[in-house]
Design a protein around this nucleic acid. Structure first.
Length: 577
RNA sequence: UGGGACGUAGGCAAGUGGUAAGCCACCUGGUUUUGGUCCAGGCACUCGCAGGUUCGAAUCCUGCCGUCCCAGCCA
């Protein structure tokens, strides 16, 4: 059996297995019918003019995922036809993000600019076939001649130049003999088409701007519509997946491929781009947040960029899982960010070692515990995964617990510490609150408790039950750390839900970042390495910030909180009142 | 009153003429040394609306309504 046969056979298996969305269904059918000899080749084609975000992740997971499912391949191609907007620094970050997500394009890294020579030849071919012309109308005139949504356009007076004249003019354009804006090359299609894209679209414009890859070689650059379909064809792409707004461009995509002598005719299929609640995904708005200083940069942990999410502590596994769960369809969809958080928690719960950190410390003195005694208690590192082992935690007379784990006047259903009440210190002892010490303002600053030496490890032999379990840190052994709590960037699900005269920035969440200093962490955390993830018991998942942590002084980012049933109860009680 | 698409639960989304999957969210209960995890259960008498075809319609037909996209020498 030769390789092609083997591939076809694999594809058959794949096609039976994967029919989970309309695109895979189409491809599956194509494969079964032997279209493209059963090959499947996709591509992810970013323009290197910005950072990748979670919306791009959907496209990456789709394109690489489809290729994987059908035993094909996926190319990474930079769509770099506009040197005014594109920069090399974006290329590296995009490659890094795709790799981080877990995908490998192998040998298949391409640039549209690699095809400039061939694209130029295609343009001449079009001219020779009488299907393109050099137009001297100004930009404004072109707009006027295009007509409107409801009225047909008019033909340019330059539309019927001879092939020879067009060829000569186009060559002069290439040679730099004209100024920017003096003329463009246009496809000769139909000025009265109801589809505006077909009203003689521009395919080459003059830009006397050096290109980040081709340098000064060109002063004319091809437009997207012309470039994309031909690049796809040149690479042997079989299925060109793009977002809904390109639906109207499909006739043009097909037109170029039909007019020209091309290697193959890929099929463009459109799907709905991802939108998420409580955030924005448009390049323009993201840029505005960065430029306006609303965030600290493109990799601010609150940003939906892949670099921001990476820094925040998201895992590629969680993002991939999310992208697969949201599905692929054609209806415009706004996915609840809670689903993303769910995927994250699910992944982190499995893999994050547990750790005790008191975010807002309240001092507790255990009166019947010997002054200078110290002991170690054993704690599991992850109840979900015993293979992660255990660790020793130091215990002593003075400890810290979470402020929120004590109430002088406990509300109903509150089963944490209160005067006279007993709770468990996780993995250590039961303690009972005997006294409350306040400062002159009446604020609780210290608790006096007693412990039951018979409850070591957090068990009681007499079968007595305690309802609450608190995390804690031994004061003498605690290390101070900085912790950053993040919340949604926007308070409203739809940031564009605004009053008259406002813009989306009016919905920025003023509490999207809360910095906590002097948090008390168990000793081992002092040496946590950049990027390392933890579950801070009863709080959430945290990772060591890669930018601001120093040796021995880690800064922790809250990736996502744990679900908090008690907070929910309190919230609903407040609402009911 | 141009063209292209899309309307199934609070949010995604299956469904392709045989009597509404699944996930998130939400709500109940159970387990629990994390108010976490886990487990069990609930959550669309109905598929934008109105007619029609059919023994039978979310699926087919007709009409209507609503939402989104398109007038860059951006992608």
């Amino acid at each position: 059996m030769d390789i092609r046969e083997q591939e076809a056979r694999n594809n058959q298996n794949f096609s039976q297995e994967y029919t989970s969305d309309f695109i895979r269904e189409i491809i599956s059918r194509d494969v079964q019918e032997g279209k493209n000899d059963g090959r499947v080749v996709t591509r992810f084609p970013p323009e290197p003019n910005g950072y990748l975000h979670i919306g791009h992740a959907k496209s990456i997971v789709l394109n690489f995922g489809v290729a994987e499912d059908f035993g094909g391949r996926c190319h990474l191609r930079f769509d770099d036809t506009n040197p005014e907007k594109e920069e090399v620094e974006y290329i590296e970050s995009i490659k890094e993000d795709v790799r981080w997500l877990g995908y490998d394009w192998g040998e298949h890294l391409y640039y549209a600019s690699d095809y400039f020579d061939r694209l130029y030849e295609f343009a001449e071919e079009l001219i020779i076939k009488g299907k393109a012309y050099v137009d001297n109308l100004s930009q404004e005139q072109i707009r006027e001649y295009r007509g409107t949504l409801t009225e047909p356009g008019r033909e340019s007076p330059f539309r019927n130049r001879t092939v020879e004249e067009n060829l000569e003019l186009f060559r002069k354009m290439r040679a730099g003999e004209f100024d920017e804006g003096e003329c463009v090359l246009r496809a000769k299609i139909d000025m009265s088409s109801p589809n505006l894209n077909m009203r003689d679209p521009t395919i080459y414009r003059i830009k006397k701007v050096p290109h980040h890859r081709t340098g000064d070689k060109w002063c004319i650059y091809p437009m997207y519509d012309f470039t994309h379909c031909l690049s796809d064809s040149l690479e042997g792409i079989t299925h060109s997946l793009c977002t809904l707004e390109f639906e109207d461009h499909r006739p043009l995509y097909d037109w170029f491929l039909d007019q020209l002598d091309v290697p193959c005719h890929p099929q463009q299929i459109e799907f709905a781009r991802l939108e998420l609640t409580h955030t924005v995904l448009s390049k323009r708005k993201l840029m505005e947040l960065v430029r306006g200083g609303y965030v600290t940069g493109w990799n601010d942990p609150r940003m939906p960029t892949l670099s921001g999410m990476r820094r925040r502590g998201f895992t590629p596994e969680a993002i991939r899982d999310f992208c697969k769960r949201i599905g692929v369809a054609k209806s415009k969809s706004i996915v609840d960010i809670a689903l993303l958080e769910y995927c994250l928690r699910e992944d982190l719960n499995r893999r994050a070692p547990r750790s005790m950190v008191v975010l807002e410390p309240l001092k507790v003195v255990i009166e019947n515990y010997p002054e200078d005694k110290e002991e170690e208690v054993e704690s599991e590192n992850n109840p979900e995964d015993p293979s992660m082992g255990t660790r020793k935690l130091p215990f002593s007379k003075v400890i810290y617990i979470e402020k929120d784990d004590f109430r002088e006047n406990p509300p109903p259903k509150y089963y944490r510490l209160a005067p006279g009440r007993e709770v468990r210190l996780k993995h250590a002892y039961y303690i009972k609150c005997t006294d409350v010490i306040k400062d002159e303002k009446g604020e609780v600053i210290e608790l006096r408790c007693t412990y039951d030496p018979e409850t070591r490890g957090g068990w009681s032999a007499d079968g007595r039950k305690v309802k609450g379990t608190s995390h804690w840190v031994s004061a003498r052994h605690a290390v101070d750390v900085e912790v950053r709590l993040y919340d949604h960037l926007f308070t409203r699900a739809d940031p564009d839900d605004i009053e008259d005269g406002e813009d989306f920035k009016a919905n920025i969440n003023p509490k999207s970042l809360k910095i906590l200093k002097g948090c008390k962490a168990e000793p081992a955390l002092e040496n946590a390495r950049s990027g390392e993830i933890f579950q801070f018991l009863r709080q959430g998942y945290f990772c060591v910030d890669s930018e601001d942590s120093k040796e021995g002084a880690p800064v922790f980012n809250r990736t996502v909180s744990l679900k908090d049933t008690w907070a929910k109860i309190e919230r609903s009680k407040k609402k009911a009142r």
